[in-house]
Amino acid sequence: MSGLFTDAFIIALLAGVVAATVPLLLAGLGEQISEKAGVLNIGIEGMMLMGAYGGFYVAWASGNLWLGFLGGGIGGMVVGALMALFCVRMGLNQIVVGIALTLGAEGVTALLHYEQFSRLYPRLSVMAPLPIPGLSQIPIVGPALFTREPVVYLAFALVPLFVWLFRRTQLGLMLQAAGDKPAALDTAGVSVLKIRTIAVLATGLLVGFGGAFLSIVAAGVFVPFMTHGNGFIGIVLAMLARGRPTWVMGGALVFGTCLSATTALQVAGVDVPTDIIQMLPFVAVMAVLLVAGRKARLPAALGAAYVRGER
């Protein structure tokens, strides 16, 4: 076993953890915004797939990976706009619409892929890493964590940004109010529907970026159903985090480590079935809940459409 832990292997392992964590982080942070504002966004798996497809398509068509990310964000926001229209504006059941949007996005992206790419299977170029001066010189950690694609740094930079947004800004306060006591927000003269619409669109944007990361950076191709439950894990992360962006990051790292462990162990020649490894993060979280479980505090008005004057 001692020969296993060469520097190259550890670098690959850490790099794999980061690559698996980023989409989960973006999905979790995105879902967190919706949940704070009182929208239980079951549709983020669909937003993520649309982001993955939109990101891949634009990157392939334009030859520019950054434009691809923009396309991914827009793809996610298109699904987010539908979610906002149906659930926030029209007050339809959030679980019905969320599942419908996920199924629809699965179908649409798979069809588009079938029509356009099923005979070609084009691959994207690799995004150039951006070494951070100084830090990237550290042995092992440097090449694994600080010689990464710029989008990786941006994703992690969102965590402190969101902490600041939620704690220190008026927008953060309004988001919280839209989820906890929408009537109070309405009384204060702020449109609940507007805040919730903004929140759902922001979710679409972030989750779309997460999907684009999967197709552009992690895989380099689009494959139907490629998000493979990443969005649902994002829902779990947001609920476990109880409104704290740092907890989303912690959770994403735990899940990301387990997801990337399969590949790492297989490379190392240890033959553990994929199914077993994929169970690990869920076993871990269930065990933690069982031992140290406390009430997961969720916004009071989560899942309920806001109708002015209704009690």
Partner: peptide, 9 residues
């Protein structure tokens, strides 16, 4: 999937 999604909405 597309038909089912449209039907649900």
């Amino acid at each position: 999937l597309v038909t089912v999604a449209l039907l649900l909405v």
